[in-house]
């Protein structure tokens, strides 16, 4: 304890001679050998479902009657720092004037989007929301241009679902690329 390494007492010497520390070390690693692994078996068997606050692929919402909430105000387009949203507004055919204004075209170029969420904040009708879809890689640039119809479709993970868990999943390959399909019924917490 006084910093003198040569001043070993009998206990220390015996410890050295019988490899006590080394054997203790071996037992520690042995315990770890049979402990639960922390590896996430993505994408073959498991998938991480993010929390609701996650900023993934954009979604366009509808109200309870199924009408699009987006009023084509173009605020998201204006607020986007990378200018990747294109909104072209129009009136619908009901003839009620500006009250029924909707977006004629609503496109987003995900190659430029940095998922900052400013568009979401700007939206006055809460039509736009950054969802939990994060597998956006694909084989063609064209596929990164998402249109209104695709974004209006229901997302794979329902909004009610809390997230923050690992679920069982399976990997599917098709000509569009890879897809990991989650199975929400089997869940586990990480760690």
């Amino acid at each position: 304890m006084n910093g003198n390494h040569y001043n070993l007492n009998l206990k220390d010497i015996l410890k050295k001679v019988f490899f006590v520390d080394l054997i203790q070390g071996l037992f520690i690693t042995f315990n770890y050998t049979f402990s639960k692994t922390i590896t996430l078996r993505y994408p073959d068997e498991e998938k991480w479902i993010p929390y609701r606050r996650f900023r993934g692929l954009h979604t366009l919402n509808r109200n309870k009657e199924g009408k699009e909430l987006c009023v084509g105000c173009e605020l998201c387009q204006k607020s986007c720092p990378t200018q990747c949203i294109t909104v072209v507004p129009m009136q619908d055919k009901t003839g009620k004037g500006i009250a029924d204004r909707i977006a004629y075209r609503w496109e987003i170029n995900l190659l430029r989007c940095m998922f900052c969420g400013l568009c979401e904040d700007a939206c006055p009708t809460e039509a736009l929301k950054l969802g939990r879809e994060y597998e956006l890689a694909n084989t063609s640039m064209q596929r990164s241009l998402w249109t209104k119809e695709e974004l209006l479709a229901a997302q794979e993970i329902p909004v009610e679902f809390d997230g923050g868990v690992i679920v069982r999943a399976r990997l599917e390959r098709d000509d569009k690329g890879l897809k990991v399909i989650p199975d929400m019924s089997v869940q586990k917490r990480w760690w």
Binding site: T29, Y32, T33, F34, S35, K36, T37, I38, T39, R41, D44
Partner: peptide, 11 residues
């Protein structure tokens, strides 16, 4: 792998 709480080769 298992000593380091990983899985080792798996795929």
């Amino acid at each position: 792998g298992h000593i380091q709480v990983r899985l080792g080769p798996y795929r």
